[in-house]
Simulated assay, not measured.
Amino acid sequence: MRIMGLAAVAAIALAAVSGAEAKDWTKVRMGTEGAYPPFNFTTADGTLTGFDVEIGNALCDELKLECTWVTQDWDGIIPGLIAGKYDTIIASMSITPERMEKIAFSAKYYNTPPAIAIRKGSELASATAEGLKGVRLGAQGSTTHSQFAEEVLSGSDVALYPTSEEYKLDLENGRVDAVVDDVMVLDQWVSSDQGSCCKILGTMEPVEAIHGKGAGIGVRKGNEELAAMFTKGISALRQNGKYKEINDKYFKFDVYGSE
């Protein structure tokens, strides 16, 4: 799950589309990043997929909504929502107090902890602040994980990257000693041929003030009725087995977290 800086949002908010647009929702534009596997990514043939996308599509089917997808770079994803480029964000976005000042959210649709990955053969032995002290640590910028690295793992030499793919490359090539991200993102990577260089060192306890209460579906202020629709839809998918079907396609355990 991730968080972004909100400096750019303040300026855009002045020119934003009004959130007070109560309506009978039948068509919804869904915003995502498309570069955060296994949650959202684009395949070689240009197909947008991933856990976020499949859950979003299942929710649209459940709620009988006609949905279309829009991709947006992570740093601009909240400004894009506020400016009316799309109606929702479903992109592994953590529900945090800072973000809730700008947009509204559904209930969570998953909640997983951060983890540390290292190269195989590394002498690092502990996924703790003390164990990572002095270590060159990579993270994707403008995320909960970069904030966690800078605030909780401040004894590390933190290097920030525009995308997760770039920090993975630098870990593989030895330009950083370790990286921090969502455990599921790192687990999928190290289990693949592309991540065969590396392994999970361990998970870390989330900090609610940083990581929030899970990933939710973001909407513009004033569209809380749309968020409530998705909250009901998430509950329905949990009950009818569709959530488990999608979950098991991507993960080895239930990523929803505690009920």
Rank of each mutant, 00 (worst) to 15 (best):
I3D: 09
A8E: 13
A11G: 15
L14W: 07
A15P: 00
E21G: 15
K27P: 03
K27S: 15
M30H: 01
T32W: 03
T32Q: 06
G34M: 00
Y36N: 15
F39W: 05
F41D: 12
T42K: 06
T42H: 08
T43L: 15
D45I: 10
G46S: 09
L48W: 03
L59C: 12
D61L: 09
D61Q: 14
K64P: 00
P79W: 06
I82Y: 00
Y86C: 03
Y86E: 06
I89K: 02
S92E: 07
T96E: 10
S106E: 09
Y109W: 13
Y109H: 05
P113D: 02
P114G: 10
S122T: 12
S122A: 11
E123K: 15
G131H: 11
R136A: 13
A139C: 09
Q140D: 06
E150D: 06
S156N: 06
L160S: 00
L169T: 15
V176L: 07
V176P: 03
V176Q: 04
V179P: 05
V185A: 12
S191I: 10
Q194G: 11
C198G: 03
K199Q: 10
E205Q: 14
E205S: 14
P206T: 06
A209W: 00
K213C: 08
A215C: 10
K221G: 01
N223M: 11
I234A: 05
S235H: 03
Y243C: 01
I246S: 02
I246N: 03
Y250C: 01
E259C: 02
